[in-house]
Design a protein around this nucleic acid. Structure first.
Length: 277
DNA sequence: AAGCACACCTGCTAGC
DNA sequence: TGCTAGCAGGTGTGCT
């Protein structure tokens, strides 16, 4: 699913493709993709505006408009943005089509319809739309220090995987990267945060940054059963580096012990029973 | 208060 | 071989 590295890849592609282009029309065909405002209000906020900057916070994509408002996109599980010449056949589940003055099109395709687009006008001190102001630190855009991580852990008493998935603490980590970060930290998904030693916090901090940076470099993960594609329809390559995610029964790359899967925090969690404690 | 289960939705797959 | 029940997951909500 699109997590921080996938959204960052799309952000970079958008920055290269659509900045300074002016919007001619914004067509909303699906019923659910634009739900925080009416379709006409959404279109009206976009038509005539130009995109001046592409930002990201966690899994949110933020496209600044030239009037100060922000076009916000969240891909959730199956959302996909694609950009190209207008007039091409539309893929199934195309819910929003933004056409620029040069007739090129930015399309939002989303089979499961959990993803959303909206235009936000109120921004907070971090220049984030007020409605997503509960998002925690973005470890790539803002950096994450060991001191900050220790403060976020505070007096929490929960599974370390649940902590990593909490967007109000660290923004951008989902199920795939939480498993890969825990593998590299040598911690089990269910390891209690209140039992983390200083050395564990240090490893966790290093792993969060390293795993996400490597995944960004390889343009994210594209798995067989998911649909992540970049703005031009090309998949990522980080799945080839996955140590544990989606590898139940396959050998751990470090010790060859078969990878296990358990349920933690309501999600499937993959880990090496020998390397992770 | 903080942690947890659940709803939302469709495509894919495991199992019959 | 063909069908279907169940799983997959990010976030907001509501319950404990």
């Amino acid at each position: 699913m699109p997590e921080l590295p996938e959204v960052e890849t799309v952000r970079r592609d958008l920055a290269a493709a659509v900045l300074s282009r002016r919007i001619a029309t914004a067509e909303v065909t699906g019923r659910r993709s634009v739900r925080r405002q009416s379709a006409p209000a959404f279109s009206e906020a976009l038509v005539g505006r130009a995109l001046v900057r592409a930002r990201r916070h966690g899994k949110y994509l933020l496209l600044d408009l030239d009037d100060g408002a922000v076009l916000v996109a969240h891909l959730r599980m199956s959302g996909q943005l694609s950009y190209g010449e207008g007039g091409r056949a539309r893929a199934a589940h195309t819910h929003v089509v933004i056409t620029f003055e040069d007739r090129s099109e930015l399309r939002f395709v989303d089979p499961r319809t959990f993803g959303e687009l909206f235009v936000a006008e109120e921004l907070d001190a971090r220049r984030l739309p007020v409605c997503i102001g509960t998002q925690g630190i973005d470890p790539i855009a803002e950096g994450l220090s060991e001191v900050q991580l220790a403060a976020l852990l505070g007096r929490r008493r929960t599974a370390t995987k649940a902590f990593l998935l909490d967007q109000s603490a660290i923004a951008g980590i989902g199920n795939i990267y939480s498993d890969e970060i825990l593998f590299r930290s040598r911690l089990r998904p269910a390891h209690r945060t209140d039992a983390l030693r200083r050395i564990d916090v240090r490893r966790l901090c290093t792993s969060v940054t390293e795993v996400l940076e490597e995944a960004v470099t390889l343009r994210g993960s594209s798995l067989r059963d998911e649909r992540y594609r970049d703005l031009n329809g090309v998949g990522g390559a980080f799945q080839e580096r996955h140590a544990v995610y989606g590898r139940v029964g396959l050998p751990c790359p470090t010790c060859a012990t078969p990878v296990s899967r358990v349920r933690v925090a309501g999600r499937s969690a993959h880990f090496c029973p020998r390397c992770q404690r």
